[in-house]
């Protein structure tokens, strides 16, 4: 399909260097179609897929942790409820990016510590904690690969957004009118039944606006992957947008970084727009059969 590409690239390259030669619109179009399907460009499309994949993996982790946090907060044991309360308010006080930097490193060091002291260097005199420095021996040191980094990022995102989610779920569980639960008990339902059949299903309705908001925040937090050393779309946009000289590149062009980043902006804009549409629908579905003043619920 792209056999003509080398020829076109060569032709345009020649024309760029020679004032006398001109490039027709059709050639330009062909050049672009070739340019956008180079190996490097395919990797930026793949990176966009990875972003979506990370989103898809983060959501269940965050929801699970959110539920654990919210339910743990209401626990009878003070230790658990204290820890969970701390978890629920955690992200309100501390910027999320600190967790994104801290959590992967902590997990990495935890593994290194286990490797250092129990597997590889049991005999070595070198301590793991050397004053303020941490020094695993060379066999135990981990050099993170792209895949490891992505997995650790999902864990970090899960923890942070789990905290946000716990906040929302906690609020939504409290928002369900107490009379509902009371009625359930009056009908002789067990505590378990009241929770799963009455409390939880109604919780979703109150939690949905919060989740919608959270999902949008999560989408807008994915570029931070770049700051964790993951080769995501920003990394490739930065790389591909750089000026490519005629000497070293098959497809020479000027500094197109701005255009690449604007394209990224549009990508994210489309993503948020689509999500908002979906959530509006969901909200309508969850509110079916509820008596709600239309004028106040129409806005999301």
């Amino acid at each position: 399909m792209f056999e003509h590409c080398p020829a076109i690239a060569e032709q345009v390259k020649l024309a760029l260097g020679d004032e006398a030669l001109s490039i027709s619109v059709q050639e330009r179009a062909q050049w672009f179609s070739c340019y956008f399907t180079t190996k490097k460009h395919l990797s930026i499309f793949r990176a966009a897929g990875v972003v979506l994949l990370i989103l898809a993996f983060t959501v269940p982790v965050a929801l699970l942790l959110g539920f654990l946090g919210a339910l743990g907060k209401a626990s009878r044991w003070p230790v658990i409820s204290q820890i969970c309360s701390l978890y629920v308010i955690m992200v309100r006080g501390i910027p999320d990016i600190i967790f994104f930097l801290f959590v992967p490193l902590t997990i990495e060091i935890g593994i290194e510590y286990v490797m250092h002291s129990f597997v590889y260097c049991r005999d070595s005199a070198e301590p793991f904690f050397n004053g303020i420095n941490i020094q695993p021996c060379s066999e135990a040191a981990i050099i993170p690969t792209q895949f490891n980094r992505i997995v650790l990022a999902v864990v970090a995102y899960g923890i942070v957004f789990g905290s946000f989610a716990a906040n929302i779920i906690d609020g939504a569980l409290k928002a369900v009118p107490f009379g509902q639960r009371e009625t359930g008990s009056a009908f002789g339902l067990s505590q378990r039944q009241v929770f799963f059949d009455i409390h939880l299903p109604q919780m979703w309705r109150y939690a949905l606006p919060g989740f919608s908001n959270l999902w949008l925040i999560l989408i807008k937090a994915t570029p931070l992957l770049f700051l964790l050393g993951i080769q995501d779309i920003i990394y490739y946009a930065d790389l591909l947008g750089k000026m490519a000289t005629r000497r070293y590149s098959t497809y020479p062009h000027g500094d197109w970084k701005l255009w690449y980043f604007i394209a990224l902006g549009i990508f994210y804009l489309a993503l948020t727009m689509l999500s908002q549409l979906v959530f509006t629908r969901l909200e309508r579905r969850f509110n079916k059969g509820m008596v709600i003043n239309e004028t106040t619920s129409g806005r999301v």
Binding site: P223, G265, Y268, T272
Partner: peptide, 14 residues
């Protein structure tokens, strides 16, 4: 809509 729909990091770059 534009500023609320795009990530801050990308806004910094742009």
């Amino acid at each position: 809509y534009t500023f609320r729909g795009t990530p801050l990091l990308i806004q910094f770059f742009i």
